[in-house]
């Protein structure tokens, strides 16, 4: 964040003392007027629902009467002792532990490749970026057809002589299949951030390394990757947050099945709140999700910062 650069510019304006105070009150009012629609929107659409989730999570809503009453920690104790919720947590954590590093590595590899000076490289980069524009629900629909018994993927498997796979209908392959479609939809998007990081590395470093006779691999491991740590850390964190909130493919394709193997936390929250009508428990799960995300982001920040020092 660079608030400092902004201060330098406007602080230098000269003004008389009395006039200055009147002027500064006026400019403050003008600034607040310009900011207020944005601030009101952010408070009502982001902060208030967060607070409401916390307060609702301590209440119980009667399905019969619709009356809501304070219920202490019972929504939390219910969730934390519910074996269904335990398996949701395990599925969500394992899914993320595999998916996010894979996305970071693949998007970095693609960024390194398409940042090279190659014939028509802009076209190849744009083709890799295309899925980033496809809405998540459409990604799910495209891949559900591609992963059908007579879909694209099985047809290609047949060409190379492999047997057809059940994919979304198998408990052991469904989560993997969802991982594939998410990776496909996300790669090009995160690649952009790594490319931006690559462009920030000064050419002089590479020139110096070339003079010292460092080869391609040496330059990759001694210059490029260390200096990419910041954008890669950003991608890992942002991508983790996105993957924890994955919802569309589960809701459209698997409804958490087969056998709960794709019951990721966002779908479980939706399921408990709307399909089972358990609003208090759903809100408690929203709060747990936000706490979980805060912890994971904080840990990732800490780890990546220490590595840098």
């Amino acid at each position: 964040m660079r608030a400092a650069t902004a201060t330098r510019r406007t602080a230098a304006r000269p003004a008389g003392s009395g006039r200055r105070r009147r002027r500064s009150v006026r400019t403050t009012l003008v600034a607040l007027a310009m900011l207020s629609p944005a601030l009101i929107a952010l408070v009502l659409m982001r902060v208030v629902p967060m607070i409401s989730a916390v307060s609702e999570s301590f209440r119980h809503v009667s399905l019969a009467t619709g009356a809501s009453e304070f219920d202490g920690l019972s929504n939390y104790t219910y969730l934390l002792t519910d074996s269904g919720f335990h398996s949701v947590l395990v599925v969500t954590l394992v899914f993320n532990l595999v998916l996010n590093p894979a996305i970071v590595l693949l998007s970095t590899a693609l960024a390194l490749l398409t940042a090279q000076r190659l014939p028509l490289v802009g076209l190849w980069r744009s083709m890799i970026f295309v899925p980033a524009a496809v809405p998540g629900a459409v990604v799910a629909l495209i891949w559900s057809t591609a992963l059908q018994p007579d879909g694209l993927v099985n047809a290609l498997l047949e060409v190379v002589g492999l047997p057809p796979q059940p994919f979304l209908t198998s408990a052991s392959q469904a989560a993997f299949s969802i991982g594939i479609m998410v990776t496909w939809g996300a790669l090009g998007y995160w690649m952009i951030f790594v490319i931006a990081g690559l462009k920030d590395i000064p050419d002089s470093l590479y020139e110096a390394a070339a003079l010292d006779g460092a080869g391609w691999w040496r330059r990759l491991f001694s210059i490029t990757l260390p200096l990419l740590k910041r954008p890669m850390a950003f991608v890992l964190i942002a991508c983790t947050v996105g993957s924890f909130l994955l919802f569309a493919p589960v809701q459209i394709l698997t409804k958490g099945g087969p056998n709960g193997s794709t019951n990721l936390i966002m779908f479980d929250i939706y399921n408990r709140t709307y399909l089972l009508g358990d609003v208090g428990v759903g809100q408690a799960e929203v709060v747990i999700l936000m706490l979980l995300l805060a912890v994971i982001v904080a840990v990732q920040f800490r780890l990546l910062r220490e590595e840098k020092a």
Binding site: R46, V47, P49, M50, S52, M266, G282, L293
Partner: peptide, 24 residues
């Protein structure tokens, strides 16, 4: 303070609070 507030709030992922917001 205002700028920090905007950046921090922007980082609240929308989908996480979509369900509480929909009851509001």
């Amino acid at each position: 303070v205002v700028f920090t507030f905007i950046v921090v709030v922007a980082m609240i992922p929308f989908d996480a609070i979509a369900i509480p917001l929909s009851s509001l």
